[in-house]
């Protein structure tokens, strides 16, 4: 059984379609990233899967149940990091994490998750006094404290500094290594590339591309751009396979100190995909 199975999901707000019929399958143990511009429908989709919003159409199975009707035992198996929250401002980090841990049958200890998100130094601080990125780490801690089988992360690293982001990536990899299925949305393409086994690009409520970070949007087949210096001139060639050209350049004794071979980054591919829609 897959962790998430979605067919023909639709959601309208006041008659306007925010999610216009999407199909999605996330396998157990997989890290799946949902990309897309602001307003694409990522949060709407994820919150429907979490049971926070009602759908207008389509079939949804999350851990084998319909999130619209699933009960407490189902909730104990999922973890949620919402896009934004500013609750519990007057509690300390430890108080809040310990409190939420108490709702789950087999929680991690508060100290353990606080350590995992790198907040040990701040564990007795009131949540109100934390910086934006620290506050976000509390959200992540609360999402994983119940030892979820399936973890939803809606833009989890917003406001993280580069080091915290790396730490978070390690955390996600560790969780995935332990068999946790992860569905994450992000605007950081390096994050999607670093973490995701598979990803999908959502735009205007529809999935416009789906694949692995390496193959998304025909990225693998897009070939490479080779450029080098010939005298005063910069030469550039776009090729499906640069092997022949490189061999020839070496054989000809060309000046290779300036040689670059570039393949489209995930960001290029993404921007092309989004741009093509406009």
């Amino acid at each position: 059984m897959e962790a998430i199975e979605v067919t023909g999901l639709r959601k309208t707000y006041q008659g306007r379609e925010a999610v216009a019929g999407i199909d999605l399958v996330v396998a157990r143990g997989e890290i799946f990233a949902l990309l897309g511009p602001n307003g694409a429908g990522k949060t709407t989709t994820v919150e429907i899967l979490e049971g926070h919003r009602r759908r207008n159409g389509g079939d949804v199975r999350v851990l084998g149940e319909d999130p619209g009707t699933a009960g407490r035992s189902w909730r104990s198996r999922i973890g949620i990091v919402l896009q934004d929250a500013d609750d519990a401002a007057d509690l300390t980090v430890t108080e809040m994490v310990r409190h939420v841990a108490g709702f789950y049958p087999e929680p991690r200890t508060a100290d353990e998750v606080i350590e995992l998100v790198g907040l040990t130094a701040k564990k007795t601080s009131k949540i109100r006094t934390l910086s934006g990125g620290q506050r976000r780490r509390v959200d992540v801690a609360l999402g994983i404290v119940g030892r979820p089988e399936l973890l939803f992360l809606d833009e989890p690293t917003t406001g993280f500094d580069p080091e915290a982001r790396r730490q978070f990536w390690d955390l996600i990899r560790t969780l995935a290594g332990d068999g946790t299925t992860i569905l994450l949305t992000t605007h950081y393409l390096d994050e999607a590339e670093a973490l995701a086994d598979r990803l999908a690009v959502l735009a205007g409520g529809q999935i416009v591309a789906e694949g692995t970070p390496a193959t998304l949007g025909g990225r693998a087949a897009a070939g490479a751009k080779v450029s080098w210096q010939e005298g005063d001139r910069t030469r550039t060639e776009q090729l499906a396979d640069p092997t022949e050209l490189l061999r020839k350049l070496v054989a000809d004794g060309a000046d290779l100190r300036t040689l670059t071979v570039t393949r489209p980054t995930l960001e290029d591919t993404y921007l092309t995909l989004i741009g093509a829609r406009k």
Partner: peptide
């Protein structure tokens, strides 16, 4: 402030 939403996502 999201307290209710947070709690609703847990088995509470």
């Amino acid at each position: 402030d999201g307290t209710l939403k947070r709690l609703r996502g847990t088995p509470l």
